[in-house]
């Protein structure tokens, strides 16, 4: 998926959302609609740097929840984040791409599944930083509450879900 498609995608997705997320409005989105009905099979491409100790934990979490995950080690993670439109202040240690959406950081698989079902008009969802207790960040040192944030290409940020709710 190239950058141009990604820029156009939110508009198409907002249309999809208008129709309840169930209708394919153009031939280009048929594939996405099909994936949305079976999100567990939607391939995830995850980008991380070689030294990250917790990114692998998130990959395991996604695989345990039925996602097929391609693990890509990159030198310049920032370039990936820029391409996918992740706002700087939402950055975490890894970035993934699923069905055209950016998934930034330790986002629970349940939220990714809901994103693929509901297909809101956003560029992606993010858990900034590395909250203790988030998927891949399970820690004997405790748990921090965290909010999954949705973001658009225009930089609008809104709450997508809260953990704990």
């Amino acid at each position: 998926m190239n950058a141009l498609t990604l820029r156009l995608l939110p508009k198409a997705l907002s249309l999809l959302l208008t129709f309840g997320g169930a209708l394919a409005v153009s031939s280009g989105n048929v594939a996405h609609a099909a994936q949305a009905s079976a999100p567990a099979l939607t391939p995830v491409t995850a980008y991380r740097t070689a030294s990250c100790g917790c990114c692998k934990g998130w990959l395991q979490h996604m695989r345990a929840n039925g996602f097929v995950v391609r693990d890509v080690v990159v030198a310049d993670l920032q370039a990936i984040k820029r391409r996918l439109g992740v706002p700087n202040r939402l950055n975490s240690c890894h970035t993934a791409e699923v069905a055209g959406f950016a998934i930034e950081g330790h986002v629970p698989a349940a939220d990714v599944r809901r994103l693929l079902r509901s297909r809101p008009a956003v560029a992606g969802i993010a858990v900034p930083g590395m909250p203790l207790g988030s998927p891949g960040m399970e820690s004997p040192y405790g748990k921090e509450p965290f909010t999954v944030l949705a973001f658009t290409r225009a930089g609008t940020i809104s709450a997508f879900s809260r953990h704990p709710q």
């Binding site: 939402l90 040192y141 965290f146």
Partner: peptide, 10 residues
């Protein structure tokens, strides 16, 4: 502060 990602891990 923590909601924007500057929690204990960082």
């Amino acid at each position: 502060d923590a909601a924007m990602g500057v929690g204990r891990m960082l």
